[in-house]
Design a binder for these strands. Sequence first.
DNA 1: TTATTATTTAGATATTTGTCTAAATATATA
DNA 2: TATATATTTAGACAAATATCTAAATAATAA
Lengths: 84, 84
Amino acid sequence: MNHIFKALNDQTRRDILMLLKEKDLTAGEIADKFSISKPSISHHLDILKRADLVYSEKKGQFVHYSINTTIIDDILQWIFNLKN
Amino acid sequence: MNHIFKALNDQTRRDILMLLKEKDLTAGEIADKFSISKPSISHHLDILKRADLVYSEKKGQFVHYSINTTIIDDILQWIFNLKN
DNA sequence: TTATTATTTAGATATTTGTCTAAATATATA
DNA sequence: TATATATTTAGACAAATATCTAAATAATAA
């Protein structure tokens, strides 16, 4: 859970997940939605990837990112477990 | 959600929540379960409190801590929202 | 009142983190 | 091939974080 909570502990990364929830986007499209540099966004995407919260697939010169809902269930289970 | 994810982004704090899930404990009892100093535990408890993840109540010279499951539901809702 | 116990606060320090610019890599196009 | 576009990597730096020891605060007991 360490990588997951680390990944979620940043507003920009949470915003990226919200965007990818709606539809898949390329790295550049994601970067365009924020006012921070492309390398910084690339770094955030790397952290999300290490946490398995997103997938990435290279198509030509673009890299397409999508959310991984499988991991979401793991988080839900961990949080839910706190309740009883 | 910022304070909550920040609070959850630490193994010691997550372990404290797991302990408090089982039963209420005083600050000292919590500190005894870890190999870090009491001031450090006090600091972790403060972060958990700021995130509303725990309550604290002073009884005599002791401070009793307990988990706040109300906030857990907020987290569950936030995570669940990522799925659709 | 004095001493003891429980907890927090203050201040210091090493590590981690988010950001930047510049450079590197990879693909597409003229 | 040469150029343009998309993305990542490298290296630097300021801010945030987890930890420590020492001191302060508060409550109990002798």
